[in-house]
Write a protein that binds this DNA or RNA. Structure first.
Lengths: 203, 203
DNA sequence: GTCTATAGACGGATAGAC
DNA sequence: GTCTATCCGTCTATAGAC
């Protein structure tokens, strides 16, 4: 399992995968070390505590999320294109979501019940995703409407992950993403209409 | 903490609450015993293993869920009334959902990554809820459409729990339940229309 | 004396931290 | 590589009811 990447990087990658597949509590430092092709003492050289590993994983996920949200997207792409691309990305990961649930959502759920030192970082990628959605919706509707749309879409996608995971059925993700696409079209069409007639609000 | 209820019942109640508030892995038998006003040795008298406690908790949750879904509901209530009542119940628990997440969903998420002996029971209440929704929708639309509606509504509610928990914001639950109410009205109106013209399918 | 319920202690195993 | 802490599961001891 030894790559050309640095040991520290391999530790973070291994922990990232194990946290997603088995959860945080069920993953020991020894597991991480073994998956990274190291001994546990070596992990301690790079990370003093398990929380330090956790923090590094959260940081890596945030960076990857930011990258995935922007890479391959034309700088002048409109909101609909950007959001539709995100939906397509989620759809393409249906199998993994059905097997392990959403890495971001399940980590937030698991660690949201613990102390503040874990709960807050665990929720960060989720909130960052919501911020991204809000900023995209905000380009074509009021800030208030964008906030509601972002929250609704995020909730639907997270729920799709939960249900797909519970049923071990990737089709759940695909169906809910498709439903979200229909909803997206309606919401954006409504927003475009309201920009000519800025009178009512939409849910 | 000694009530008039039986010790076994107190153990299950305490475990139910602790699993919901702190998760399964983070709850020790000693914690359960203390919350029930007993010592761990006594818990072992009623439940050989932690899994036995877990199974009893899952059973209790299923029974309570069944009871909550039916009690106070007129036997001849229509599908819309039944589903709207469920939505109202979820809405009334917004505060608890924001603090600890959905007990059913978070347990399924946490234990879905473990061995089959835990993962399958953990998901059961969630699937039972989906079955209930499907049966209610099935009274006013085709079985296929009811399956999609049940899945969609369950996903939205579960996602609302995840997001509300991540943000510690009960308003998320209330907003998504309200959005679900609007969606419910539309879907049921569409279904009523299609019963006269049984031609197209709805998403 | 027997049965039930409670209480406490021990052993094996494992994880995290140094 | 070691050390300590914790947890699960088991075993033994105590107390009261019939």
């Amino acid at each position: 399992m030894s790559d050309t990447t640095s040991p520290r990087e391999r530790i973070v990658e291994a922990a990232d995968r194990l946290f997603a597949e088995h959860g945080f509590a069920a993953t020991s430092i020894a597991d991480v070390a073994a998956a990274a092709g190291l001994l546990k003492g070596n992990v301690a050289y790079y990370f003093k505590t398990k929380q330090d590993v956790f923090d590094a994983v959260v940081l890596a996920r945030q960076q990857r999320l930011s990258r995935e949200l922007t890479e391959g997207l034309a700088p002048d792409a409109d909101a609909k294109t950007a959001i539709a691309r995100l939906l397509a990305q989620v759809r393409s990961e249906a199998d993994r979501l059905a097997r392990f649930g959403c890495p971001i959502g399940s980590l937030s759920t698991e660690l949201g019940k613990t102390g503040d030192s874990l709960q807050s970082p665990a929720a960060r990628p989720l909130l960052e995703l919501e911020d991204y959605l809000r900023s995209q919706f905000g380009r074509v509707m009021t800030a208030s409407a964008a906030r509601e749309c972002a929250e609704h879409l995020l909730a639907l996608l997270q729920g799709a992950g939960v249900v797909a995971h519970a049923r071990r059925d990737p089709a759940v993700v695909r169906r809910q993403v498709d439903a979200a696409s229909v909803w997206l079209d309606n919401v954006l069409a409504q927003a475009a209409q309201l920009q000519g007639h800025p009178s009512r609000s939409a849910v």
